[in-house]
Design a protein around this nucleic acid. Structure first.
Lengths: 300, 300
DNA sequence: GCCGCCCTATCGGAGAAACCGATGGCATGA
DNA sequence: TCATGCCATCGGTTTCTCCGATAGGGCGGC
């Protein structure tokens, strides 16, 4: 049994075909076909249903899938351990967390704040759905998400709390209204993120509460761009407080004086079982994240 | 990476040499030497210290060792799962437990008393020390031992209690003395197991309590032989009650009326973490063993 | 119905790798 | 000093791997 065959099998399942798998792996199509034949001969069972339109795993192939992933994972881990390198911790996070909060935590982690339990860390930025998928399939060891809801029965820990706040530039008309009412808000224009983003969902909920008429001034996929637009007075934005902490302190943005609207957020770490040598570093990292929850994270 | 190379490495470590490993694996010595060279080239690190008297793993090789075992285990498990067979549960037990108690439990287990969580079971009979070694090295998934003491931090469960009792044939002179005193016992002859057996340890402790002069009539490695000798009136024997339950009920043996001597025994199940698909069957089996503790197991 | 398209299997050959037996070097112990 | 046991290396044979080219087979468009 050779890991090449398992890699070939995984590539076929992921890309949906032998030709595409061969391209991804840098082999000729006939070679991957050979490898799969060898694998099936070795296992004694067909693992792929070939059709003229593509290839999908058989029932046996679906049973093979998690084992193939675990074996390749274990192979990587073995190489790391044998050559004396630190274990690898593959974490994933939402864009906002990866941009605004993880850097400091990871810097501290790298500088030994976690004690002897250190590791090489990779960060993958993705949507909540893909993060959970990657975690379940073993492509990630741990993820940091917001309000991830149910549907996960692995180990997890609450890392901190935050809330969504309504901010504008201090020069914005809304900023000088005290107290602010929902009617005032309706007359303003908003900066929002793309559909699918968790803060867009917050905005949509907020809109449902306020009324159907919220006006959108601009849509952008980048939280950072959105924040800078807000600083420049282009509209109001509904953002997690931790991502605008610096601007609130420097006065570039102000929180609007509105009672309604703030949505609570829970930052949660979720990880796989059976991490092996990466488990201790992960636990240290999670503790570090809990220590790094800024004071503002406490619900006020 | 090929499993052959890992197998070769393991064989070398276990047999202490490349030549002996080659013999065990059915290869020529030069082939195993080649395989190891390939493995080390692949890993980028020497994993074996070769000397003219033998071969031992380097530091990197010691790190490799558990990974090699886990990978080969996972490979086997994968083949089972893919080909649709039931998971394999490799259990170990002391001779007495394997002879007198496990058969009924395993029969019930095989007949579906464990519900859907079934498995193919192998039973390895060995000494307590070797059982623990095999469990730690991943050669066994679970072991059943008596009073195994400390030194194990994995999951475990108490399966039952028993005690060591002093038995003879009903025709034996000691059987008709009521109440029996230690002085009477000293004048008799004993049937004992070999040194290293846990019941021999019980006997030696009993001897220390009674005095230095206990006479040994016969030493045998087989608990079964020893029991039959006792039935035939060849002496007294110190045996776990569960192993002579049938003879006590049929009247072929009697418990001596002695207050001193009985030693409490705890039957404990210990198993590995991360059993994978064999975990559910094992838990079912452990529950079954607890149900199968006969009434006599309760300390009386 | 027919043709092109995309997918996969198969074939023959070149190169690489696995395996073997034989040989030689090296340390150990007699 | 020699015999012994262990391992590495070498040359040759067999096997495997990979490739390009070719062929079969379903699917959609014409």
């Amino acid at each position: 049994m050779d890991t090449r065959q398992l890699r070939a099998f995984l590539a076929v399942v992921e890309t949906g075909g032998i030709s595409s798998a061969a391209e991804q792996l840098g082999y000729a199509q006939s070679s991957v076909s050979d490898q799969l034949r060898t694998l099936e001969r070795d296992l004694g069972v067909p693992v792929l249903n070939r059709t003229s339109v593509g290839t999908a795993p058989t029932e046996a192939g679906q049973r093979l899938l998690p084992y193939a992933r675990r074996l390749l994972d274990l192979d990587n881990e073995m190489r790391r351990s044998v050559s004396g390198r630190r274990p690898l911790l593959r974490i994933g996070a939402l864009q906002s967390l990866a941009d605004e909060w993880l850097p400091e935590v990871l810097t501290a982690f790298d500088h030994g704040a976690a004690g002897p339990d250190t590791a090489d860390v990779t960060v993958t930025v993705s949507s909540r759905g893909r993060l959970m998928e990657d975690l379940n399939d073993g492509r990630l060891d741990a993820v940091f998400t917001l309000d991830s809801g149910p549907g996960y029965d692995g180990p997890s820990a609450v890392v901190g709390h935050d809330r969504v706040v309504l901010v504008t530039a201090p020069s914005h008309p809304l900023a000088s209204i005290h107290p602010l009412t929902l009617d005032d808000v309706k007359r303003s224009e908003f900066l929002v993120t793309e559909i699918g983003c968790i803060y867009r969902q917050c905005f949509d909920e907020f809109g449902r509460d306020v009324g159907p008429a919220l006006r959108i001034a601009m849509i952008t996929g980048s939280l950072n761009a959105l924040r800078r637009l807000a600083v420049n007075g282009r509209g109001a934005a509904l953002l997690p407080r931790f991502s605008v902490q610096a601007e609130l302190e420097s006065g570039d943005l102000v929180m609007l004086d509105l009672k309604e609207g703030p949505v609570a957020l829970t930052v949660e770490a979720r990880w796989r079982e059976g991490l092996g040598p990466a488990e201790a570093p992960l636990r240290a990292l999670v503790e570090l994240t809990q220590r790094f929850s800024p004071a503002s994270w406490a619900m006020t």
